[in-house]
Amino acid sequence: MIISTERLFLREWRDEDRAPFATMSADPEVMAFLRALPTRQACDQWIDAQIAHHAAHGFGFWVVEGRRSGAFLGTVGLFRVGFDAPFTPAVEIGWRLAREAWGQGVATEAARAALDFGFNTLGLDEIIAYAAPANQASQNVMRKLGMARDAASDFDHPRVAADSPLRRQVMYRLSDAMP
C-alpha cells in the first residue's frame, strides 16, 4: 500500500530502508527529542516492530519517500500506544525526518496524509501526539495539523528514565469531529 501526496509517498518498509534509517537515527540533532536507537541492531528492531504493527493492525510508521527523487526522507505514521497511561488505549501519530528534509513542510504534509488515513480509512475517532516540552518543532507541526493542546493529559513517559529531560511529555489531540 502506498499513500501519495503532492510531493511524497508514504509506503511500507523495504530492506534497503534499513541503512538510511540507521544513518538518520545516528544523527544527534534528529534524535535530540527521541528515545535513542544507539546501534544498527536497535534500528533494525524498531523497523521490525513497525512491520509487525502493520501486519497486525494494517497501519504503522511508513517510510516517507520523495516522489521525484525517490530519496528516503524519514518515517511518519500511526501506532497504537504500547504502554499503560490514563489516555490509553490510543493511537498516536509521530514522525522522524532526516535533517535534509527539515523546514520544507515534509512532516506536516506526510502527517496530514497519515491523519486522513487514520480517520477516513481506519475510522478512528481520535489521534493523539505527544512530545517533550522543549521539542517546539514537533509541537508546531501538531498545531499546523489542527491538533489541540491538552495540558491536563501531560504525562511522564514510562519508557523514559526518570532523570531524563525527555520523560515529561506534552499531549495534543485531534478528533475526527474537530473542524
Rank of each mutant, 00 (worst) to 15 (best):
Thr5Glu: 08
Leu8Ser: 02
Leu8Lys: 14
Leu8Met: 08
Phe9Asp: 01
Arg14Glu: 04
Arg14Leu: 08
Arg18Asp: 01
Ala19Ile: 12
Ala22Val: 14
Asp27Cys: 12
Arg35Asn: 05
Pro38Arg: 12
Thr39Ile: 12
Arg40Ala: 02
Arg40Gln: 02
Ile47Gly: 01
Ala49Val: 13
Ile51Cys: 03
His54Val: 07
Ala55Arg: 15
Ala55Lys: 14
Ala55Ser: 11
Ala56Gly: 12
Ala56Trp: 14
Ala56Arg: 15
His57Leu: 11
Gly60Val: 10
Gly66Cys: 09
Arg68Ala: 07
Ser69Val: 09
Ser69His: 07
Phe72Trp: 13
Thr75Glu: 08
Val76Asn: 10
Gly77Pro: 08
Arg80Gln: 09
Gly82Asp: 04
Pro86Phe: 10
Pro86Gly: 01
Thr88Ile: 06
Thr88Ser: 05
Thr88Val: 09
Val91Asn: 05
Gly94Thr: 13
Arg96Leu: 03
Leu97Arg: 05
Gln104Arg: 11
Ala107Lys: 15
Ala114Ser: 11
Ala114Pro: 00
Ala114Leu: 14
Leu115Tyr: 08
Asp116Glu: 10
Asp116Trp: 11
Ile127Glu: 00
Tyr130Ser: 00
Tyr130Glu: 00
Ala132Thr: 05
Val141Leu: 02
Met142Glu: 04
Lys144Arg: 11
Met147Gln: 09
Arg149Gly: 01
Ala151Pro: 15
Asp154Ser: 06
Phe155Leu: 06
His157Cys: 04
Pro158Gln: 03
Ala162Tyr: 08
Ala162Ile: 14
Arg167Ser: 02
Ser175Met: 12
Ala177Pro: 00
